[in-house]
């Protein structure tokens, strides 16, 4: 049981990473990674939602009729996310304003629905919570990497503090949405090469 949990944990961070391996949650990856601070808040939101929704779905998994399971999952996820949105608005209205609709859009993040469908529905609550935690962490560290690259190169700041000299001319494109595509693609390129070193296949070596 212990080794299984550990394997699950590592898989969700690495070879089965929700962002760069399953390529889920790309909308939020592109939208919020222009600033590190926004990304941290967004990651916390997704982490919290994943853990809680996984636990709730897992607890209710024997009571949910299969025919309405998706509807029930969305209902659970939506209530969890709404709670986060309300808390964020109450305690840090500034960040809430900056993130705009993206907090509410956590509901539609494929990772959360995906983990509920693929894992929580068929596993006990403790494992489901672990799955939520590791998937959320896997999401968070990839997003933070992207955000760090984009904020430093695209704006010359980190966590809102200027770190590049005045001679630095920011790469404006990286601060725009297309920049996220380039950074994400490069990261997927590097991480897939590092995490899953593949043997030479016909596609990998053209001609």
């Amino acid at each position: 049981m212990k080794t299984r949990a550990a394997r699950l944990f590592l898989q969700n961070l690495g070879s089965n990473n929700p962002v760069f391996s399953q390529v889920l949650g790309i909308c939020s990856t592109l939208a919020v990674t222009n600033r590190v601070l926004n990304t941290v808040v967004m990651s916390l939101g997704v982490l919290y939602t994943l853990i809680l929704s996984n636990i709730l779905v897992s607890l209710l998994r024997r009571r949910i009729p299969p025919r309405v399971r998706m509807m029930s999952e969305v209902l659970i996820i939506a209530s969890v996310v709404l709670l986060f949105d309300i808390l964020l608005r109450a305690f840090s209205p500034e960040i809430s304003r900056q993130l705009g609709p993206y907090v509410g859009l956590i509901i539609t993040n494929c990772i959360i629905m995906g983990r509920a469908e693929a894992f929580a529905l068929s596993h006990p609550p403790a494992l489901a919570a672990l799955d939520g935690l590791s998937s959320g962490l896997g999401y968070a560290y990839v997003l933070l990497l992207i955000a760090a690259v984009r904020e430093v190169l695209g704006a010359g700041t980190f966590w809102g503090l200027p770190i590049a000299g005045s001679a630095w001319s920011p790469w404006t494109l990286l601060a725009m949405a297309p920049g996220a595509f380039f950074v994400l693609a490069t990261l997927v390129w590097i991480l897939k090469g590092a995490v899953r070193p593949q043997p030479a296949t016909p596609e990998a070596t053209p001609r």
Binding site: S169, W171, T172, L173, P178
Partner: peptide, 10 residues
């Protein structure tokens, strides 16, 4: 295009 969109002033 990358330079154009990144360093518009230059």
């Amino acid at each position: 295009a990358f330079l154009y969109l990144s360093f518009g002033a230059v």
